[in-house]
């Protein structure tokens, strides 16, 4: 009748993998953030897919949409903090290349 669940989950999974690919290959901090956003949005899409196709009464449905709303807020917050970190990083080190910010190294 309408969009098949498989398509939705497939798109969500593909986006998720794409985001992960971005996270593990990119070196620009802003691109890293954008990749994380793609991953988050893949997850939100997944929630909405199951909100549309509730697996059982009480699961999915409107609760799925509620969780999605909360996630949207969370992801937006994360972008804001991430950009603040980008600014701080740029100010302190003059670069936003994560390959140069290697303080985590022992």
């Amino acid at each position: 009748m309408s969009i098949p669940l498989v398509d939705l989950l497939g798109l969500s999974g593909g986006l998720f993998a794409l985001g992960i690919f971005g996270i593990i290959t990119r070196r620009n901090f802003i691109l890293l953030l954008i990749s994380v956003e793609i991953v988050m949005n893949a997850a939100i899409l997944n929630f909405l897919a199951f909100a549309y196709y509730p697996p059982a009464p009480g699961l999915g449905g409107v609760t799925g949409q509620s969780v999605a709303v909360v996630l949207v807020g969370l992801a937006a917050t994360e972008v804001a903090v991430g950009l603040a970190i980008v600014l701080a990083l740029n100010r302190l080190r003059g670069t936003i290349n994560v390959a140069e910010a290697i303080q985590l190294k022992l």
């Binding site: 939705l8 989950l9 969500s12 196709y53």
Partner: peptide, 10 residues
């Protein structure tokens, strides 16, 4: 995704 059961739209 391919293994997902066929749920009905709510």
């Amino acid at each position: 995704a391919l293994r997902a059961p066929a749920y009905l739209p709510g």
